[in-house]
């Protein structure tokens, strides 16, 4: 269903954002009390939405293989647990992950476009992406050129995203805004609108390398951009907060936010993901607490 090429000029005017108002709204999501069956269901959803991530200079094939095993076996002592949605690695590790996950339905996401800074040439970014796809990546997590964005070259940012999406074809493209570098929520909203209109299947907050990362204020702002786009066009776009979500409570509050803003249609890993490395075990511990009634120890949950 490849439609006509997206045009920068078609992006609607982004609404202005009052940050204090956003903080108040977000605090309301945080006062939602998730108990009992709702909590079990929520925790299970969180697990199924995780993009288990390793993005370090010191990543090796062995590290990636271990993470891929964990992705398929979150906590074998408990039946009925889902697997994570995907693993997220550097392009050079895609083939390793592909091999390690060949028997599972877990997706392989690869970062690209000179992740995390995006400071490279257009050609390098394109070949980076092509390399990851050729190696078997199911999803691409690209970064936007924040320097260009901040100097007002929105057109440039838009064109880059559109070009990468063209390379991705049917493969899903997540566009990382690196909101910690965008200074304020108005910019986050603007970048979200640009990414969505340029063809992003998902918008994603952060690389995990910059603080602050996926604050609820930022995620809220991006969810509102997705909502407005959906209301206008009927087209769904996915959301991936990444970085800084390491507790079950925060993850559940994110789900509350998704439910109340976008609705339950988004409460699947097709449309919502968490980019996280340490979230899974906290969720598992909370889950087991619900099952057993006992508070859990980290010693009983494998770290990789």
């Amino acid at each position: 269903m490849k439609a006509h090429k997206p045009l920068f000029s078609q992006i609607p005017k982004s609404p202005t954002i009052d940050k204090v108002g956003v903080e108040e709204r977000v605090s309301r999501f945080q006062t939602r009390s998730i108990k009992g069956t709702a909590k079990m269901q929520g925790l299970s959803m969180v697990l199924s939405m995780i993009d288990l991530t390793t993005l370090e200079g010191k990543d090796t094939p062995n590290k990636v293989r271990q993470m891929c095993y964990k992705a398929q076996h979150l906590h074998d002592f408990q039946d009925g647990l889902p697997t994570v949605a995907a693993v997220c690695v550097y392009p050079t590790m895609v083939s390793i992950a592909k091999d390690a996950l060949k028997d599972s339905s877990i997706k392989i996401a690869s970062v690209s476009t000179a992740f995390p800074s995006g400071q490279s040439t257009f050609d390098v970014k394109k070949s980076d992406t092509q390399f990851a796809l050729d190696a078997g990546a199911d999803e691409i997590d690209m970064v936007i050129s924040r320097g260009k964005f901040l100097s007002g070259e929105y057109n440039f940012v838009f064109d880059e995203i559109a070009a990468i999406k063209e390379i991705c074809g049917q493969k899903r493209l997540k566009v990382i805004l690196e909101t910690g570098e965008l200074a304020n929520l108005d910019q986050v909203r603007r970048a979200s609108d640009i990414a969505i209109h340029a063809g992003a299947d998902f918008i994603k907050t952060s690389t995990g390398k910059i603080q602050p990362a996926a604050t609820m204020q930022v995620t809220y702002t991006m969810l509102m951009a997705i909502k407005d786009h959906y209301d206008r066009t009927g087209i769904m776009v996915g959301m991936k907060p990444a970085g800084g979500i390491s507790t079950s409570k925060l993850a559940l509050h994110n789900l509350v936010m998704v439910k109340e803003i976008l609705g339950e249609a988004w409460l699947t890993n097709e449309w919502f993901r968490f980019g996280a490395s340490s979230l899974a075990n906290d969720v598992l511990m909370q889950y087991m607490k619900q099952v057993t009634g006992k508070y859990q120890s980290a010693d009983y949950f494998t770290i990789d």
Binding site: R32, Q41, K259, E264, T268, N269
Partner: peptide
Amino acid sequence: MTDSNNTWEYAP
């Protein structure tokens, strides 16, 4: 993948 027809109600 999870089923796409998700409902998630807050328990009292």
